[in-house]
């Protein structure tokens, strides 16, 4: 025994420390487990379907055979059009809110509304899309209507991500630029935006991942069960991966087991690929930044 020997209290603290560490670790493991199980099961049951035919041909024989080509293309089409609608709008709104809007009640209400918009269930967005784009603007059930619905749904993601990355640019840079005689727009264009691109990209990729997977917003506004031809304009209907997965698992009898798993795996692979692109972008852009 010396003056620094552990007392009973120290040993009790040590046991508690150990217990909590174990508890938090176990929780983390519990979180990872479902992800691994889902991915494992998809690969296990779905990989046998992967072939040239699966990716590059139309479904055949009442969806029970053939590939997913039109759905794959349709999903890319939907996502692209949605991006063209939501990114300019979302970035512009975020720039206004972060760089121009005075900090008053109205601005705070708008910010609150944006956060609430993010919490609206996707089926509600779907109904809004039917009412606004399909019927009121008379776009019919079309890629345009579906993409705009997706765009409205994901706008909050773009706005919030952009606003946060704009606000992460130190105020000192803005002051420096203004004090040199630059206008607000010159400051935004030359200093603020170039330094927030990585954050904006993150928002865009998050949006893409969400857009790829959504089913509800497109099922009434533009997605269709089957079309033999690829879409030629934004006013066509289209097949889409997520909706295709929904139909072959719930609406079509006699689909071989591997088919839906293969579709799901492809869907997840697209999301993962897009996410890794965003991570790569961010790493490159952050590496250049020093302050």
């Amino acid at each position: 025994m010396n003056a620094f020997s552990a007392t009973d209290l120290d040993s009790a603290n040590k046991r508690r420390e150990h217990a909590f560490r174990l508890l938090f670790g176990a929780m983390t493991a519990l979180l990872i487990l479902p992800v691994l199980l889902i991915l494992g099961m998809l690969v296990w049951k779905g990989h046998s379907i992967f072939s040239f035919e699966f990716f590059f041909t139309n479904p055949r024989n009442g969806m029970t055979e053939g590939g997913i080509f039109p759905a794959l293309i349709g999903t890319l089409y939907l996502v692209t059009v949605a991006l063209f609608a939501s990114v300019p709008l979302g970035v512009a709104a975020a720039v206004y809110l972060s760089e121009y809007a005075p900090d008053n009640l109205l601005t705070r209400l708008i910010n609150l509304a944006i956060i609430n918009l993010a919490g609206v269930p996707s089926i509600v967005h779907a109904l809004f899309g039917v009412g606004a784009f399909v019927l009121f603007f008379n776009f019919g059930t079309s890629i345009l209507a579906a993409s705009l619905t997706l765009a409205v749904m994901t706008l909050p993601v773009v706005i919030v991500a952009t606003r946060e990355s704009l606000q992460a640019v130190p105020q000192a840079f803005r002051e420096a630029s203004w004090s040199l005689g630059a206008t607000r727009w010159q400051t935004i264009r030359r200093i603020v935006l170039p330094n927030s691109v990585s954050g904006i990209l993150t928002g865009v990729i998050l949006e893409v991942s969400r857009t790829v997977g959504e089913t509800a917003p497109i099922m009434f506004t533009g997605a269709t069960f089957y079309v033999a031809f690829l879409p030629t304009s934004v006013f066509d209907q289209t097949m889409a991966m997520s909706y295709h997965l929904y139909t072959i698992t719930t609406q079509v009898p006699g689909v071989p087991e591997a088919l839906p798993f293969g579709v799901a795996l492809t869907l997840i692979a697209i999301v993962l690929a897009l996410n890794s692109v965003s991570i790569a972008f961010r790493m490159i852009l952050r590496g250049r930044k020093k302050w």
Binding site: A172, F173, E175, A176, S177, W178, S179, L180, G181, A182, T183, R190, I191, N195, K289, K290, W291
Partner: peptide, 21 residues
């Protein structure tokens, strides 16, 4: 015009603030 005023009157800040360019 603030642009013209700030051309005539330059400012140096407490914390050096070169632009990130």
């Amino acid at each position: 015009a603030l642009t013209q005023l700030r051309r005539e009157v330059g400012m140096v800040f407490q914390r050096p603030n070169p632009l990130p360019i």
